[in-house]
Computed example of a mutant assay.
Amino acid sequence: MEVLISCLFQLKHPAIVKVICKQFQNFCAISVPVSHVLVKSQILGIIQSHAPKLLKDQKFKCSDTFIHKFLHSKLQWFMCTSTQVMQKTPDNWEKLCEDMFMHFIYYIKIFDIPAELIINADQTGICLIPVGNKTWACTGSKQVNTFAKDEKRQFSLMVVSSAASIILPFQAIIKGKT
């Protein structure tokens, strides 16, 4: 049934199919990660603007199977994992951690710092545009690059706790332009 719907969609609406394919080729050209959520929203948005009556048709469903078959048959794309390196740990990371730990012990002991003043702070990125490690890419691609993989679309959340088991209020760090 799903294959039939896919074929009928492509036969009855070739202009929409062409617009959708062009949109995803443009995404690929600028290394935008093409996730399942992006594909579905783009297809539904293009259909909404070009043939809104199609969305009211009970037979048409923009299901996972439809999306998979559409991208594979029209663009020869398949789901794959990004091959770009995210970040590298220094070779001497263990020594660096040990040195930092020794500095902490030294200052805590010398200055008699109470547990309430010994804090641990960390920050985590909260993604505004979630990007997974998989994307749709051309069949046979050796290198799969993605845009926005290096935390460009997020804000930071600062979490702080003390050695005395006190958790301080979270702080959201947002940098933007007005």
Rank of each mutant, 00 (worst) to 15 (best):
S82E: 07
W93N: 04
A164S: 11
K149A: 14
M158F: 09
F155S: 02
R153K: 12
D122I: 13
N145G: 02
A137Q: 05
H103Y: 03
A121G: 08
S82T: 15
S156L: 13
M86P: 05
W136T: 05
M86R: 15
S82C: 14
A115F: 01
F111L: 10
A163I: 06
F78N: 13
I119D: 00
A148T: 05
T81W: 04
I126V: 02
A115S: 08
C97S: 09
S73D: 14
V85M: 01
F70L: 06
I110L: 15
V85G: 04
T124M: 15
Y106D: 01
E98A: 03
P90E: 06
G140I: 05
F111Y: 14
S141W: 00
K74G: 01
W136K: 10
K134C: 02
A121Q: 11
M102F: 15
V85C: 12
V159K: 13
A121L: 13
S73L: 10
V144L: 11
N133F: 15
M158D: 08
H72N: 09
M100F: 14
V159A: 14
S165M: 01
K142G: 06
C80N: 05
W77D: 03
I113A: 04
T146L: 07
N92Y: 03
K69Q: 07
P90G: 11
E94N: 00
I167R: 07
L157H: 03
F111K: 14
V85N: 05
T89F: 04
M86C: 00
I166W: 08
M100G: 06
N92D: 02
V160S: 06
W77K: 07
I110S: 03
I166S: 09
F155N: 04
M100P: 03
Q123I: 10
Q76P: 05
I118V: 09
L75G: 10
G140Y: 04
C127Q: 10
S165L: 12
W77R: 05
K74T: 12
A137L: 01
I105Y: 05
L117G: 12
F101Y: 11
C127A: 13
E94T: 02
T89S: 09
M102E: 15
M158R: 08
C97H: 09
T89L: 12
A121F: 00
P130E: 04
Q87W: 12
S141M: 07
T124L: 13
L168A: 05
V85H: 09
K88W: 03
W93C: 14
I113D: 10
L71A: 10
I166R: 14
M102Q: 15
A148V: 00
V159I: 12
T83W: 02
I126S: 00
D91P: 06
F70A: 10
T139Q: 09
F155A: 06
Y107F: 07
Q84E: 00
I105W: 06
Q154T: 00
I166G: 09
K109L: 09
Q84P: 01
L75D: 11
T89N: 04
C97W: 07
K149T: 08
E98C: 00
